[in-house]
Design a protein around this nucleic acid. Sequence first.
DNA 1: CTGGTGACAGTTTTT
DNA 2: CTGTCACCAG
Length: 738
Amino acid sequence: MDILEDLNPRQREAVEAVDGPVLVLAGPGSGKTRVLTHRVAYLIRVCGVPPWQIMAVTFTNKAAREMKDRLHHLIGARLGQLTIGTFHAVCARILRREAQHLGVDSSFVIYDDDDQLGLIKQALKELDLDHRTYQPRAIQGAIRQAKQELVDPDSYVPKTYWHEVARRVYARYQKLLRDNNALDFDDLLMVTAQLFRQHQDVLHKYQRRYSHILVDEFQDTNMAQYQLVKLLAGEHHNLFVVGDEDQSIYRWRGADFRNIQRFRRDFPEAKTILLEQNYRSTQTILDAARHVISRNTQRTDKRLWTEKEGGVPITLVEAYDEQEEAEFVVEEISRLVASGDFSPGDHAVMYRTNAQSRVLEEAFMRHGLPYKLVGATRFYQRREVKDLLAYLRLIHNPFDQVSLSRVINVPPRGIGPKTLGWIQSLADRRQVPIYTALQLVKEAAEEQASRSNEEADTPAYRPQMATFSGRGGNALLGFLSLLDSWIAVRDEKRVHELLDRVIQDTGYEAHLRDGTPEGEDRWENVQELRRVAMEYAELPPAEGLASFLEEVALVSDVDNLDEKVDAPTLLTLHAAKGLEFPVVFIVGMEEGLFPHSRSFDDPEAMEEERRLCYVGITRAKERVYLIYTFRRAMYASSEECEPSRFLHDIPQHLIQGPGDLMGRGAPAPIARGPARRQPLPRATSAPGYKPGDRVEHPAFGEGVVISSRPAGDDEELEIAFVGRGIKRILASYVWPCK
DNA sequence: CTGGTGACAGTTTTT
DNA sequence: CTGTCACCAG
């Protein structure tokens, strides 16, 4: 039975526990994906469960894809009969099939965060509410939270007057969604749960269909997701969940790791299996991570162990500021690569906030080294991509008002707020969507034209027409005829051909390529989108458009991480979950940054920061570098920093510092002797510059010193660089010009 | 209707 | 120091 062969006893137990509920608590690197895939294969090949009776849900498309890839080796073509996907994708599929029970059309569109925010703003406007008191973002948060707890506007119990207003906005927002035949991300879950609760027959159908349910990253489920799987498994209880409380880092998005406890309570007969053998890291790394996480209260203690005993100590580094921090990282990576032990792609640099990536990027660029950046602005969130997708959504469904108002004046075609407001109010008066209102205007205009010879001045027509005669009206008609011309060919043209037509007819290319480098970047993104569209060229046109739109709605990040490129990866700690690297640098280990200051007054938030640190450290296979700075630029000013409390939790014997570089005593507060305050061994000690001195900088080239002031043991110079303007730079970064 | 200016706020982000 | 948004002058 090859399926069980390469599993350790615990993993094997998890795979073989076929009947009833099973909870697998899987530490980092303990092979949970392996357990999941092998269990599916075991169910099919050994227990004879038909593949179509198995549902496996994940949180990310990436996880789903990885699972499919691995399963392909184990079960081959039968893979296609399994239901594997994200919660949202699985729910969307169910909802399209059961649309008749729901008051939505099965062609509903899925709104993302931006669309959602737009609709909330509209709701606020319609209710005549002040957007300063009722900030759209805050309202959005309240609505999302409610939906994740399966609370609809009618059952919403406001805690404060503000929440009462939020409830009203919520109700209005839901109506707007329905008017647009749209669901937002959270609806996919909430509406599915409602469907199951209100239609027992439908629920039974799915309960019978899926005899085995598996859930990955169970600690990240929210209430809605938990209720969903609980409902689905309500009859047979064959629910297999894998999770790790210590890696729960999405509390702020509604994830509730207490679902693990709930699971134990709701399924008391559940078998619990601990996976504690780690196949990733050295013992040193595991020990350090355990010391950090063990200060958390609400957790099951696990003792991770590995056969990779010992290992290199954790390296702790103090840098003068974020520049030097970045410089250290880049140089250390270069050194490790030069030593021959590691290749560039073995390294990851992790940080708490995206803003920290910039300095790092600059350092890599200065050294002429390539790097991979994860996250930042996501592809499908870029303006140009969203614009073009809105056009396509509009072609697919011209009644989608959110998409319509997004693009009706992009590129600018003379339809400003006034004209938009006019057509909107016409639509409201007639109780029709804007698209229909546009058609009414067109009919009226045609009628007027045909009468223009003799009867144009008939009093009955004049007042109605007067309003849209002129620029606004013509612009609207122009837009409508564009849209209609695309709709006319919608079922013949393939997605990328439609895209080309839109770009062509709207002059979108010229709109983007305004001569700036950013414009070129944007145009490049359009090309990328076109490449994605090309992948749907095989399908019949109408189907191609529909599945393209579904796919891009639910696949936000194009998992752009290109495995083939051999370069260091820059990413947030959150983005690092689920990944592993031989060498991990965690930068910005300072109080206020990591842990973030927002967590100071909330013990639960602080525990989450701690878990985040745990996740970061456990990504490493061989080496970990923890770096903090003496001072860091915050917005405009630069502030002195305190080393992160998490550093104190790692026992001294696991740590190695470059000599007395860090005046650090454990376990007491980090002793920072007054001695070491200067930037590190970079250029020889600052010689003392005065205005007029000529200096050279590795990136900016030659410049002239304008002013100088002491900064610690270093000095901060204002330098005018040839063609680069004036920069403030530490003396140790420049060399005197001979 | 557009493009410019000033006030204001500013973690993390699976879908 | 950014980016976003409301507001005002062409």
